[in-house]
Design a protein around this nucleic acid. Sequence first.
DNA 1: ACTCCTCATGGAAACGATTCCATCATAGAT
DNA 2: ATCTATGATGGAATCGTTTCCATGAGGAGT
Lengths: 332, 332
Amino acid sequence: MRSDGQRRATIKDVAEAAEVGVATVSRVLSGTGSASPATREKVLAAAARLDYRPSALGRNLRRQRTGGIGLLVPDITDIFYGRLADGVLACAQSAGEPVMIGTTGDDPEREAELIGTLIEESVERVIAVPSGDGEMWGPAFRAGLGVVFAERPVPGRENVPAVVTDDRTGVRTAVEYLAGLGHRRIAFLARHGQAQRVRAFREALAALGVPVDEELIVHAHATRDSAYAAAAGLLQHRSDLTAVLAGGNVLGEAAVLAARELDFRVPRDVSLIMFDDVPWAELCHPPLTVISQPAQDMGYRAAELVLREGRRSRTVTLPTELIVRGSCGPRR
Amino acid sequence: MRSDGQRRATIKDVAEAAEVGVATVSRVLSGTGSASPATREKVLAAAARLDYRPSALGRNLRRQRTGGIGLLVPDITDIFYGRLADGVLACAQSAGEPVMIGTTGDDPEREAELIGTLIEESVERVIAVPSGDGEMWGPAFRAGLGVVFAERPVPGRENVPAVVTDDRTGVRTAVEYLAGLGHRRIAFLARHGQAQRVRAFREALAALGVPVDEELIVHAHATRDSAYAAAAGLLQHRSDLTAVLAGGNVLGEAAVLAARELDFRVPRDVSLIMFDDVPWAELCHPPLTVISQPAQDMGYRAAELVLREGRRSRTVTLPTELIVRGSCGPRR
DNA sequence: ACTCCTCATGGAAACGATTCCATCATAGAT
DNA sequence: ATCTATGATGGAATCGTTTCCATGAGGAGT
C-alpha cells in the first residue's frame, strides 16, 4: 500500500483497484452514462478506499471550461468591499464554485495584470469593481470572459451587465434631506470614480434651485490618507459650508476625524451624512446619519448574474435607504 | 484571420504562425533552453500578434504543481480578517500567485468542504485561520498541502507553521493596565476558539493575585448578534464588574453598543479595552483603548512562509501594542 | 434459431503545455 | 578533408480527465 501520502490517487489508480476501465470510473463518478450496480459499487468502494478526488486540472483541461469565478475589488480592507466580497462568496460557495480574488487598489495597471492572470488561469467569469475608466477590459472581452461589473458601471461599456446602487436617488435623498434642514452650502466629498454620484449631486442641487459651487466638490483617492487630506482641506478652506455629504465610508470616517481635529462640532457646526451603513456609524459620536447601500446583496446578485450566463442580462440597480441618526441638524 | 474572439490562441497556433515547432515556442516563451535570435524574434512577434497567453491549465497539469495559494478565513466582513487577507494578497500578488479565497464562518464542516475544493483544484499551499479544534485538517496533510495557520494555532498540530499574535503578552498588558487603574472585577469577552487568550487571562490575573471568577469569562460566536447577546448578558447579570476586555473588534463593538444601550457610561461606570486597533476605535465616544494586532503583517508573513516552503519553519509570534485612548478610567 | 436492439464496458483520442531525446547543421580542430 | 563538439530545432511522450466509438453480451421479438 503506497496510497498514504506520496501521490494523489488518479482515476487510473481507481480503475486498477476496481478492476475496470478508466472510462467506467469516470462515468460512475460523474453520474453520466450507464453502469451496472455491481460495477458501480466496486468503483465507489475503490474510490473511497483510495481517498480519490478527481483533479480539477485534468477535468478543466478536457472540458475547456474552468468554472470558478474571479473577483476584483479595489481594497478588501474597505468594509464596503468586504461585504460585497462576502455576498459573492456566499453565492459562489453555495454553487460549489471556487473564487479567485485580487485587489486592484483602484489602479488600472494592476487591474490589467490581474485580468491577465485570470485569463491565464482560464477563469471564465469575473465580477469586478472596475478601476479608473475601465479602459483595461478589452483583453477580457476578447478572451470571451463573462464579466459583471459591481458598484460602478463603466462609461464605454453600457452593454456589460452590472449591479450598481441607485446613485441618483440616493444622492437626491441625501441632498433633499439636508436642504430640508435648511442647508444650502453643501459639500460633496467624492472618491475618484464616483462621477455618477457627482453628476447626481449637481442635478439634485439644481432641481432644488441651489446654485452649484464647484469648489464644494472635492475628490480624493481611495486611501485613508488621501480622504483625510481632502476632508481637512474642505473644512479649512471652505468654512462657509454647513453640510458635508461623503461618498463612502472611508470618506465619511475621514470627515468625522477631520471635523473633530479642527474643532467642528457635529451637527452644530457642520452636518454630516455619508454613503454606506457600517457598524461604527452607530458607535460614532454623534451617531452618523447614512445612506445605506446593500453591499452584500450587490455581491450576491452579481454572482448570480455571472453564474447564469445564459440569458442576456441588463444592469441591475439596487435601492438605497436613508437612515437618520444624529449627525445632521438644522442650519445654524 | 479568425483570431478575433472565438478561441484562445494555443501554443500550436503560435508555432504555426511562426513556422516553428511547439517545443521551440515553449522554450522561447519560458526563457529556458536555447534559440537563435531570428527564431526568437519570429516567435515573439507571432505570440504578440495572436495575443497569446499560455494556459495555466496545461502548464500546471504537465508540471504537476499548481502554484496559487488558498486562503481560508472565518469572515471577510470582519475587518481583522479583511486586513489579514490584504496582507496575504499583497505578498501573493507581488509573487504573481493567484489566491483562492473561502469563508468558513468558523464552521468546521464548511472548512472541510473548502479544503476539499482546494485539493481538487490542486492548490498546494494554504493559509488558514482554522475553525473549531482544527480537526478537519487530516485530509489536507495527507494530500501533501503546505499549510500555514494564521491567528490561531491548532492544539494537536504544533509542528505546523503558524503566524500568531503574542496573546500572552497582549492579554497580560491589558490586564496589568486595568489592574493598575485599580480594577479587580475584570471580565473577558471571548470568541470561541480563543482558548489561548482565555488561558493567558487566567494566568495574568493569577500573577497579580486577583482571584479568577469564571462567571466573568464569557464566550460568544463570531457573529455580531451572538457578540451583542454575550456583552449585554455580561453587563446585566454581572453588574459588579468594573472593566471589560474584549477579545476582538466585533466583541468590542458589541460591548460599546451594549454599554450604551444599558446606560453604562464609559469609562465612568465601566472601563473598556479591546483587541484590534480599527479605524472606528478613534471615532468612538470615548475613543477606545485597544491592544493592536498587526493583522496585515500577519497575512503578509503567513504568505511569505507558505511560499518559501523550503525550510522547515516554526511558529512566528507577532507582538501586540497597547494604545491608550479614553475608554479606561480608574475604578470608582 | 436468427436478427435486432439495448446496455455495459474499455480503448483511445483530445485538451494545452513542458521536456526528453534524437536529428541536423555548422564551426572549429586536427 | 574528416571528425567532433556544440547549438538549434522539432517530434513525441506525458500529465488526469472526459467522451467518442467499437465491441461484446444478452434479452426480446419474429
